[in-house]
Nucleic acid binder design. Structure first.
Lengths: 265, 265
DNA sequence: CGGGGATTTGACACATATCAAGAGCGGTGG
DNA sequence: CCACCGCTCTTGATATGTGTCAAATCCCCG
């Protein structure tokens, strides 16, 4: 605790340079006191539901941040697992790579979401996480989190909830990939994004996609041309207005209807 | 702890009846001292890596079992979440149901595997788990597990690993559903089963499928006819010998080759 | 031994992939 | 500030893998 306090008193801020492109092992890390307790994302992130002393304990844990520039990876498959990361700002994608070169986007990550849990099981990361725009994450050293969660039941519980929800989310994606048609997949994708933006205080109906058509397609198990075509079709039908990365949802109900009952053709 | 000891001393064994078909809320539960420490599955299950006193602590936790007959559910979506289940014998499937009636098998579970983690996040289960043959599970009351894992770091770590591996497994399924062709999906499925049977001391090359073609198809995002056709094709090509549920893998290498490098058509 | 679900197989339909070309947009350098 | 270049996106024509529908067979269970 004193060590943490020391760091808080004498913050070391590395210059936000692009100086050492060689040292991929020493990424840009900012050591400043990050206050979970006063973070705007605390209701979405690991601190959710914690209070008072519990939050203080978490604050001790999360004291470094890292910036990741657009296109750079936060970590790659095979990297040693040491920390989890909470997205503080920006946007990430997770990808899994097959030996033959095929890869698939398995998730998109928004502020407040926790990344890196794939590494716990094998002490190595099993996917690649890349920033889709200039981003920043809070670093949570996993061993510290485990130690703290032995003292703070609510923290342990919250961490378990986060992991469990990730499992449920994955099942939703399997459902999407396994049983839905292209139209439904895209509708589901848009509604999911919309909902997550709302939770973060942004517009429910208008937002900018941070990913390309190809990345959307990869996530949805479709080719980029198909994604583009369906965007166009939705546009024609007046469900959305798309102009490149900008999307405005015009008829939420119609999109929702695409999911509920289809198949009756 | 004394309460647990008491239960161990005075085991209550409910009669293995089919007496009360109405009381779905009171399933058949056997209260006997289940010894993780002497369980044949301990290297595959939650106890993996634990030793001595740690194992003893786990033994206190797992003292009830439950039988689930073929076709019955272990739990259903919406049920209150209270416990995790470790498969002791038998075979299960997990399914997710969409409002419109479509459902998808999201996993098959073999002895030693942990079920129920989908419920942690929302205190309710989010999928249905059904026995594919007469089965038995060990019941692990989740609050007890959390309490114990605050005392036993190795147990906490092991539990986190199990959840993390589940996340990685899910990513593998997404990959399969998102990028693989039908042939590759089935090859991947057979190799996965084979590997898991080996880990349990069964033959690597010959086993009985516990699920129908339709369930395989649901899991792989294919129709049952497609699954059947590809089984037949593999058979013709001499890769496997299938006769209904019985499968014998004749050319493991060839199946593996289907995954590594395809796409070069 | 009978019945019904599970499986196999065939013919055909259709959704999405593939291939190809052109347009739009953003970043870079003169 | 404008022009160019490259990447992303759109759209069309066509190919193909898998789904759909249907019927026959198999086999397990009662």
């Amino acid at each position: 605790m004193s060590a943490v306090a020391l760091r808080a008193v004498t913050p070391i801020r590395t210059i936000p340079m692009k100086a050492q492109p060689i040292q991929a092992t020493t990424p840009e890390v900012t050591k400043v006191r990050t206050q979970c307790s006063s973070c705007g994302l605390r209701e979405l992130c690991l601190p959710c539901g914690l209070s008072g002393a519990e939050l203080d304990r978490l604050d001790e844990l999360v004291y470094t941040r890292r910036r990741v520039k657009k296109g750079e990876s936060l970590y790659q498959a095979g990297d040693a697992f040491k920390s989890l990361y909470a997205v503080r700002s920006g946007f990430f994608k997770s990808c899994v790579l097959l030996e033959d070169g095929r890869d698939q986007v398995t998730a998109f990550h928004m502020p407040g979401e926790l990344i890196g849990m794939d590494g716990i099981g094998s002490d190595r990361h099993n996917n690649n996480v890349v920033a889709l725009e200039d981003s920043e994450v809070c670093i949570i050293v996993f061993s510290s989190l485990e130690r703290a969660s032995m003292e703070v039941p609510a923290l342990q519980r919250q961490f378990h909830k986060v992991m469990s929800r990730e499992l449920v989310r994955d099942q939703g994606v399997m459902m999407l990939l396994g049983t839905m048609r292209a139209e439904e997949r895209l509708a589901s994708f848009l509604l999911n994004l919309s909902q997550r933006f709302v939770a973060r205080g942004y517009s429910q109906t208008e937002f900018n996609l941070r990913m390309t058509r190809e990345e959307i397609g990869s996530y949805l198990g479709l080719k980029l041309e198909t994604v583009s075509r369906i965007f166009s079709r939705f546009h024609e039908e007046g469900l959305i207005a798309v102009q490149q990365k900008n999307v405005r949802i015009l008829d939420v109900a119609a999109l929702k209807r695409m999911l509920g009952r289809q198949i009756d053709h």
